[in-house]
């Protein structure tokens, strides 16, 4: 609420938002959202948002805090189901399947659409057990050797293997912040998701760890479709191919990252990226 008020006091509510400008839609969409509204009880947090996540691309969701980008991201794998008063309307599709449809099993959905959180949250278990957690519950490995293999490749892909290969049995909570976050990424990709949602994955990390994570995101897009919420415009510019700008629960502009950062079409986007508020 505070953020909304402060944004309003900047006079930004004089500027009308009439549907998103730019290119919110694409041909090769992994996920597509149409006319999405999200309510917390009587409060509407997301207003009529429509756009696509392009396959094997990194899409960055940016905007001032409180603009609803995290809320929106959590809709994509139904993490908002955990909040009883949260109510989602509109159409969200993964490969043409309705995410909030009756046919969709949230368990399967969350296996296909993985999530990395703002604060690294490794389980209080060993490094090995952390990565093996997903494959184990989903029954992806038939024997120990296969599980070992999955753990190893996931750690390799997350760029963590060389650092921890000698201490796979030590607790995951004993790693440094950046390592913990990469462990969480390894944990997520161990179940071979199709989409990875990242909610400000580097905000709790130091610049060096952040750079490592950004590098990792860059590599991961070869295999996965990625949506990343970020506070830092530089980060969005570095890691993403597409950028969506959110403002007060609405999508203002979406398009190629280069385009948005060099030549935004909407006044609000320009104000934001030029640092006038946010």
């Amino acid at each position: 609420m505070v953020d909304i008020i402060s944004a309003k006091s900047l006079g930004s509510n004089d500027i009308k938002i009439e549907g998103a400008v730019g290119e919110p839609f694409c041909d090769d969409a992994k996920m597509s959202m149409r006319n999405v509204d999200v309510f917390y009880g009587d409060n509407q947090a997301i207003h009529d948002i429509s756009f696509d996540l392009e396959k094997n691309q990194v899409t960055a969701l940016i905007g001032p805090s409180g603009c609803g980008k995290s809320t929106f991201l959590r809709c994509l794998n139904r993490m908002n189901d955990l909040i009883p008063i949260c109510n989602v309307k509109g159409s969200l599709q993964l490969d043409g399947e309705e995410i909030y449809g009756k046919q969709m099993d949230p368990v399967l959905l969350r296996a296909r659409v993985g999530m990395v959180f703002q604060k690294p949250n490794p389980f209080p278990k060993s490094i090995y057990e952390n990565v093996a957690y997903g494959p184990k519950i989903h029954g992806l490995a038939t024997d120990k050797a296969e599980l070992d293999e999955i753990v190893e490749t996931s750690l390799i892909k997350a760029g963590l293997f060389n650092e921890v290969k000698d201490r796979l049995d030590s607790p995951g909570t004993g790693l440094s912040g950046g390592q913990q976050q990469r462990l969480c990424i390894a944990r997520t990709i161990a179940v071979s998701p199709e989409v990875i949602l990242m909610d400000e994955p580097a905000s709790a990390l130091d610049p060096i760890a952040t750079a490592v994570i950004e590098e990792l995101i860059h590599e991961l897009k070869e295999k996965y479709t990625i949506a990343i919420v970020t506070h830092s415009m530089q980060q969005a510019a570095r890691v993403s191919q597409k950028t969506a700008y959110f403002h007060l629960g609405q999508l203002v502009e979406m398009g190629d990252t280069k385009q948005i950062f060099t030549n935004p079409s909407h006044e609000l986007t320009e104000n934001y990226i030029s640092g006038r508020f946010g």
Partner: peptide, 16 residues
């Protein structure tokens, strides 16, 4: 070889 290397993601989905 790792399952998630050799199997396409849709195969993992089927398995789940």
């Amino acid at each position: 070889k790792a399952v998630n290397e050799s199997l396409p993601t849709s195969a993992v989905t089927e398995k789940i």
